[in-house]
Nucleic acid binder design. Structure first.
Lengths: 340, 340
DNA sequence: CTGAAAGCGCTAACAT
DNA sequence: ATGTTAGCGCTTTCAG
């Protein structure tokens, strides 16, 4: 026996039902449901009770349709990316404050960015926020032609879309400064290949090293975004002579892989070698990891991205396409003075 | 200068616009857009071209409204839960095959299950799939009164909702069997407290131990779902005398915390002590982790959950409320023969 | 403060 | 094969 016989056609209660039940007009019910003014406290009460009685819930779709505004912010995010999860959480909060709903569309190995964005468009989102988009600039530009687009954590050279990102280069500079202060010279960078932000971080590393007169110690090892790639690179580090005394990894995940390999190889962190991550994700904060890292302020970035999207929708004058958020350097327990 | 002047009021092209442009009726355009029959190949071509020319995209909401079916499956998931990410990916795929769209609603520290479900209801999802819901049974039952509900990875004693879950108890039994075969006796279980599945896994552990005549070796340590909690429990393990030779952790995350502490304490895995996880998440598969674990088949669970939701919507006769998916035991490199 | 009525963009009968 | 038309559930003037 089906529990929801004809769930397909099942008519949920509508405004009209509530109106009939409460003995008022649909318009009045609408007013009450929207918390608009124009109804006496008494009527309001009665309508609310009626709605509750018959289990009425406003229909977002009909509402959107009528208002010809969806008040919907589309968010494209990497399903398996913890940093994106943090951002999404912040976006939910910021959007609510701004009076917008959020439509999520995930990108995964089996679901392309293209598809993800299509859904968002079909849902009539008024603007989209793309987290770490990999789409070619041309494609983004085309999208910008249709609606406001905010790209997060992705640099664009001729920004067609708005961009909110962390000052990647500066973040790495902070890391280098910190390590140099601790006496390190042989500081190696495990990079992120062509991931968003990777080239900036490489550049920041090289610049900072040079500024400290450590040009000859510059050493960029190919890495990646995953623990696996970090682990592989860490093995390279261990065979490098002279052996580096400090490692700046592309991100926290990568750094975790590095730590793991060092641990297994009886290389002590931070006594023998210091390790710095990037993101200040949950991972870095785990007490047994306690990773020194460059913090990206997910909450702030999320807030700014939403604010920017809303500003565009409100037709405000927006001076700059790009918002660069300064990183915070978080010193924990994986960095220490150079050994010896 | 705003790039989207009046983006608010900006009228996107509608069916009528396409119709006018192509010089046909809206009905015909509708037919073409839905790929329904009733239009000549020639007209079809012309309409499609017109749509492309003026950048038309069907409006999902209006479509839903009119069809009085949304063909929308609501999915509630834990934003920071990697296993849920795997499930979501599978659900996208399965839903598409079944001709449904997916509406995602995340649960996070700052966003309760209650809120998440509210959104799904407001969006007029026809059915909801809840991943690892923590809501009390009564609340679920109430929800079931409104629409078909499939709870994934959560046991219900008097299932009001449909349930798709892994045979947790059996999974742990497989782990115990494996360890006993390797000669282990002092096998400790780090549990998951009141997380979904935790009590089943505890029970499975106790039962299996007893069946092997190891009742006196039963030892359940309070743990949790996170690396942090796993790490804390691992410290307990190290102070237990006689020291256990094997650990079955609540899940892979927890096991990772355990591994980390062991590594730091110079306790070799698997030479000194064996470790087993649960989930077979990405984490377990990382080459440098290579965790022996009890695999939950995310793809299959996702598929079954969608199938069940669709079956309910189709008013099919469904014999059982509960679908229990057998676990796969995955032997990697964290288990070995008992030392000595 | 309340009600009647006109659509929002689309689909599905029903005509032609 | 194509056009006409009546709503889906809601919001929003505009009159009472």
């Amino acid at each position: 026996m089906a529990q929801h016989p004809g769930a397909r056609e099942g008519k949920r209660p509508t405004l009209a039902d509530v109106a009939a039940y409460a003995g008022v007009s649909t318009a009045l019910v609408s007013i009450v449901m929207r918390d608009a003014k124009g109804a006496s406290a008494q009527t309001r009460e009665r309508v609310l009770q009626a709605a509750k009685d018959i289990g009425y819930r406003p229909d977002t779709r009909a509402r959107m349709l009528r208002r010809s505004r969806s008040r919907l912010l589309g968010v494209q995010f990497g399903l398996h990316n913890p940093f994106h999860s943090d951002l999404v959480e912040g976006i939910y909060a910021a959007a609510e404050k701004a009076g917008y709903d959020v439509a999520l569309s995930a990108v995964a190995p089996s679901r392309s960015e293209q598809r993800a964005v299509e859904m968002l468009l079909a849902d009539r989102c008024e603007a989209v926020i793309l987290l770490g988009p990999q789409a070619p600039a041309a494609q983004l530009a085309e999208l910008v032609g249709r609606l406001p687009v905010v790209a997060v954590a992705r640099r664009l050279r001729e920004p067609s879309a708005d961009v909110v990102r962390t000052a990647d280069a500066e973040g790495v500079r902070l890391a280098v400064d910190h390590l140099v202060e601790l006496g390190h010279q042989d500081i190696v960078h495990i990079d992120g290949g062509k991931a968003p932000g990777a080239s900036d971080r490489r550049r920041g590393y090289r610049t900072a090293m040079r500024r400290h007169g450590l040009a000859e110690h510059i050493n960029v090892l190919p890495g990646g975004l995953t623990e696996e790639e970090g682990a592989a690179a860490a093995r390279d580090v261990l065979t490098t002579r002279p052996r580096p005394t400090a490692v700046i990894a592309f991100n926290d995940h990568c750094a975790t892989g590095v730590l793991d390999v060092f641990l297994r190889s009886r290389v002590r962190v931070p006594a023998d070698i210091s390790v710095v991550g990037f993101d200040d994700s949950r991972l870095a904060r785990l007490s047994h990891v306690s990773l020194t890292t460059v913090g990206q302020d997910a909450a702030r970035i999320a807030e700014l991205a939403v604010a920017r999207a809303v500003a565009r929708l409100d037709g405000e004058h927006v001076p700059d396409r790009e918002i660069v958020v300064p990183p915070r350097f978080v010193i924990r327990r994986t960095t220490a003075a150079r050994p010896g």
